[in-house]
């Protein structure tokens, strides 16, 4: 794979890697929500600075992190253009009855900033948290719902397996694409009207192989004594350390400061 995709995990031993997944999930959620409740410039400078500090702490090369933003380039451009033309205000430029406004420019920029923050924060979460840890975190957070009879453990199990097969599927797609290109199929190159049907020879074998893998996996799980997710125990137990406590206080303090700034600025 030629780029680091959001959702991939990079093993490491940084303080960020060692934090409890529940703390990281909670913090990520807060960091993603804050720009929506706190629109002022000082708050957001503080917020962006904090995220950059986290990125440095994660030991993921900043350029690699920036390149993950390529995934949302088209979404970003669409959102920016949409805001640019639909926000009422002082016209800067009018083309055929539609105006680009100063306010539109600002709103568009804010959209891009929020989108980038969303991608960077979620990337940091997955880079520093293994899929297994994420699944345990989800399971632990949702545990109270299990008492209401919801299938939380099954959900966590499905999540673990799905995350585990993500790299495998990507490799598989890439291999089939190359194999069919070697037979002259136009998939990644050629005119668009030829490319779309070009994916049929990719998806058919992909589904066949996904089913074969699923069957193999089900057999292997059965052979290893899997019955249901309920009587299972876990190798890892999550327990909060002093570091987790400190990190939680820090992130809550950040939230409090930002809300205070917003309140003072009206």
């Amino acid at each position: 794979m030629s780029l680091l995709l959001p959702g991939m995990h990079v093993a490491g031993g940084t303080p960020l890697h060692r934090l409890d997944p529940r703390v990281k999930m909670g913090a990520s959620l807060l960091l993603m929500v804050l720009p929506f409740v706190a629109p002022s410039l000082p708050s957001n400078l503080l917020l962006a600075g904090f995220v950059v500090a986290l990125a440095i702490l994660s030991a993921v090369p900043l350029m690699a992190l920036v390149r993950t933003l390529r995934v949302v380039v088209w979404t970003g451009i669409f959102m920016f253009v949409f805001r640019l033309f639909t926000t009422p205000g002082t016209p800067l430029l009018t083309v055929g009855g539609i105006s680009v406004t100063l306010q539109g420019l600002g709103a568009g920029a804010v959209q891009i900033y929020r989108l980038c923050l969303l991608v960077v924060v979620s990337s940091l979460l997955t880079y520093t948290t293994s899929p297994a840890q994420l699944a345990h975190g989800v399971e632990a957070v949702l545990e109270p719902l299990a008492r209401l009879g919801l299938p939380v453990r099954e959900f966590a199990m499905v999540l673990t397996i799905a995350l585990r097969f993500v790299p495998t599927l990507f490799e598989e797609i890439e291999k089939i694409v190359k194999a069919q290109e070697a037979r002259g199929a136009l998939i990644r190159t050629g005119p668009l009207w030829k490319r779309v049907p070009g994916w049929v020879p990719v998806f058919v074998p992909l589904f066949v192989s996904a089913f074969r893998r699923a069957e193999d996996l089900a057999t292997a799980m059965e052979a290893r004594g899997f019955r249901s997710a309920h009587q299972r125990t876990h190798l890892y137990r999550l327990h909060l350390t002093r570091h987790d406590l400190a990190a939680s206080l820090l992130i809550l303090a950040l939230g409090a400061v930002i809300l205070f700034v917003e309140w003072r600025m009206g």
Binding site: M1, S2, L4, V10, G12, V60, A64, R67
Partner: peptide, 8 residues
Amino acid sequence: TYAPSTPL
């Protein structure tokens, strides 16, 4: 080089 200039 696979995934050049990334940690992977």
